[in-house]
C-alpha cells in the first residue's frame, strides 16, 4: 500500500519533507515497545506508534522500516524529524488512537507482520 493512500485512510499528514508519497509498504505493525518491534516487524513495514523519541527512528533504521506513523496526535521534535529525513524514513501523523489507526489500515487490506513473509 502506498503512503499517500495510508495518509488518506488515516486523515493524517506527512511530517518529513521528502516526497515519499509513492513509497510502498508491505505490512503494518502497531506497537509502543521498540524491543517488540525489533523482534517481530518485517522489513519494508509501516510502524504505528505513540512514542515520539529518537529511539523510534533508530529502531526504524535498524529494522529497515520504511515509514512511521505517530498516533493520538503526537508530534516528534524537530531533531527527531531531521534524523528521520537523514535516514530516509518517512514520518506520518494522525490524531486517531493506535487501535483505530491500525484497524482502518487492516480493513483496507494492509497485512499484519505475522501474515507476511519477507
Amino acid at each position: 500500500m502506498i503512503l499517500e493512500q495510508i495518509v488518506a485512510i488515516l486523515d493524517g499528514d506527512f511530517l518529513t519533507r521528502q516526497n515519499h508519497r509513492q513509497k510502498n509498504v508491505q505490512t503494518g505493525c502497531g506497537c509502543d515497545l521498540m524491543s517488540d518491534v525489533l523482534a517481530f516487524i518485517k522489513r519494508d513495514a509501516l510502524l504505528l506508534t505513540g512514542l515520539t523519541n529518537t529511539q523510534v527512528i533508530r529502531t526504524a533504521e535498524m529494522a529497515d522500516i520504511q515509514a512511521v506513523c505517530f498516533v493520538r496526535g503526537k508530534k516528534p521534535t524537530k531533531e527527531v524529524i531531521a534524523l528521520a529525513e537523514e535516514k530516509e524514513i518517512t514520518l506520518l501523523a494522525t490524531s486517531l488512537p493506535l487501535f483505530e489507526a491500525c484497524g482502518r489500515l487492516y480493513r483496507s487490506g494492509l497485512a499484519g507482520c505475522s501474515e507476511y513473509e519477507d
Partner: peptide
Amino acid sequence: ELGFGAGMGLPN
C-alpha cells in the same frame, strides 16, 4: 518510557 526494558533485548 523509551520503549525498551520489556525484557526482549537478549532474546532478540
